[in-house]
Design a binder for these strands. Structure first.
Lengths: 344, 344
DNA sequence: TTGTACGCGTTATCAG
DNA sequence: CTGATAACGCGTACAA
């Protein structure tokens, strides 16, 4: 079975009895073409089922029409939302999305640079923690590869980025618990290589400080944004004496794990221990009770970031740092603490 | 800030004092090059930080080194595993993965064809339900675009594919419930546009038939593989009088929804109602109780399918239809039914 | 308004 | 073993 050779711009030109250049003009909607010629060319294109050869176009325009999405093994729901937003913006555009999950950005920056170079991308979207990597950014800039960042926490003012205020959001979450009457509030940090983990810790600490609640280091546990890591951390917190009456997990996966850990200990949520998550990912609605959480508009963020990236590719002015609003969603995993046993 | 022009094969040739063709030979590991020349060229490449221009290579070789992954808004965990498997196999290869989620394969096949044509792909991986679309397959074959299919249920023997035995798996799941003593077993079907939904229903019916349990149509509800749709379907089943003592959901998202619905009704799982899922996705371990489910090796399937696709691209023989093993994972969401009230 | 000549960076052909 | 030359398909510069 031979593949029949794909028809080229020359074939179309012959059939329409014009020059190749004219066909090119019609394709790219350039001016100075008679309407009659246009329609003739269009018909020829249709008849030959002509599709421009992207490689050839790319060669002359030095464009690949490929945009890379760099991320690092985060939770499935995060990746999916990220891709959804990016693809949504790309709909109808000529650009295609190449997914580039990397093992560890910090470990081998040069390897990633090589990957990006060889991938012949027109631009890249950087998700955390790549979005905070100075070396990577420098290399990209040197290589002349435009990029936009999602949820950066540092090095702002260096090109387009979209983020939310992690500090304020975490503070809000903690204040919600404090307002309910909690005083012993544990926190489970996320992957330390993600700067958001620090930002969210800061928000937690600010909330405590504002209410004059002393910070206790044993109330701070570290996880990796995964369910498993959350399970381990939550068990540790619940084994304290006295245990916290509320736990703030830095993402929903770990919050779900906290609920599971509580159940293991025979504690019920929110009666014995309140749980608050972060992200409003699918999992927050799937577990029981549904999680009080901070909605992080990941899809919108990806959409906006891609939008800014396309603007850069069109040669428009570089966008700045956009901040998107978050929202505290109060569901059923948080409530007032049990009344303290009266002090005799 | 001017971007410095990327160095080309000619620059390398000049520096190494050889012809461009020789550089090309070294790059592609062609024979007939002196070791001395080789090393000289390699050094020049390193010095100039040379990376071949993929567009130019693609133009002459008529290859884009792009592989598309076509899928249709399935559950996040499924997509992620799919991508993971495909990317895992692509690691170290020159090919890149372009994600192509489509709205509805059946609705506008021609649009999808156009999409694939314009995307300039070397090959495509078809996930359900695209993997069962005859028109799409015909077009791809006519266009000379190689493809491999994941979980096809029809049109086998038409090129590489990887699947599992959905009928047998569903039968096994149902038999597990029957063995526990259940007789009133409800089922929640998946999206009707996915052929797996029918296959799994057939397995369920076969299990009932084997045990002489009459099939009741009111025990069959339809969902769309989403949590929300599962919630609606489960509520319906649980509102029956008498309600089923066990429910088989055709994926884990809907099984999780069934657990939630049971809790709404004040029923506990598995004491009042057993729940069995399908896929062994993350969600099956995150909900409480963890779900008894069928492990579907999605990641392996994608890996294998990609492997077969690469073989085709290398010009090797087309692979056939591979069947991967499934496995019933018994966890805590299934157990024996409550003893029937004694018939006086 | 339309066409011609040339170049983009790489590889295949064929000669040396 | 190595190199000159001609493609690959399209867009740019310049003519006509």
């Amino acid at each position: 079975m031979r593949k029949t050779r794909r028809s080229t711009i020359v074939d179309v030109a012959k059939l329409a009895d014009v020059s190749a250049k004219t066909v090119s003009r019609v394709m790219n909607n350039e001016p100075h073409v008679t309407e009659a010629v246009k329609t003739r060319v269009r018909e020829a294109m249709r008849e030959l089922r002509y599709t421009p050869n992207v490689a050839a176009q790319g060669l002359v325009r030095s464009r690949s029409y490929l945009i890379g999405l760099v991320y690092e093994k985060p939770s499935p729901s995060y990746v999916v939302e990220l891709q959804k937003g990016a693809l949504e913006r790309l709909h109808g555009e000529r650009f295609r999305l190449v997914v580039l999950p990397v093992e560890s950005v910090t470990e081998r920056e040069d390897e990633i640079i090589a990957l990006l170079r060889s991938a012949a991308l027109d631009a890249v979207l950087l998700a955390p923690p790549a979005s905070d990597n100075a070396a990577l950014m420098r290399e990209l800039r040197e290589g002349g590869l435009p990029f936009a960042r999602i949820s950066p926490t540092r090095l702002l003012g260096q090109g387009p980025s979209v983020a939310m205020d992690d500090v304020a959001a975490a503070q809000e979450a903690a204040e919600h618990l404090i307002a309910l009457g909690h005083r012993r509030i544990g926190i489970i940090k996320g992957d330390p290589s993600h700067a958001a983990a620090d930002a969210r810790l800061v928000g937690y600490m600010q909330a405590l400080a504002r209410s004059g609640i002393p910070l206790r280091t044993e109330m701070i546990e570290s996880g990796l944004f995964t369910f498993e890591s959350g399970l381990v951390a939550a068990r540790r917190l619940l084994a304290l004496d006295p245990p916290p009456t509320a736990i703030l997990a830095q993402n929903d996966d770990m919050a779900a794990a906290t609920v599971a850990a509580a159940r293991e200990c025979g504690l019920s949520v929110p009666e014995d221990v309140s749980v608050v998550g972060f992200d409003d990912s699918d999992i927050s609605r799937v577990v029981w009770p549904p999680l009080t959480t901070i909605r992080q508009p990941v899809e919108d963020m990806a959409y906006r970031a891609m939008d800014m990236l396309l603007a850069v590719l069109r040669g428009e002015a570089e966008g700045g740092d956009v901040l998107l609003a978050h929202e505290l969603l109060i569901r059923r995993s948080s409530g007032p603490p049990r009344a303290e046993p009266p002090i005799p």
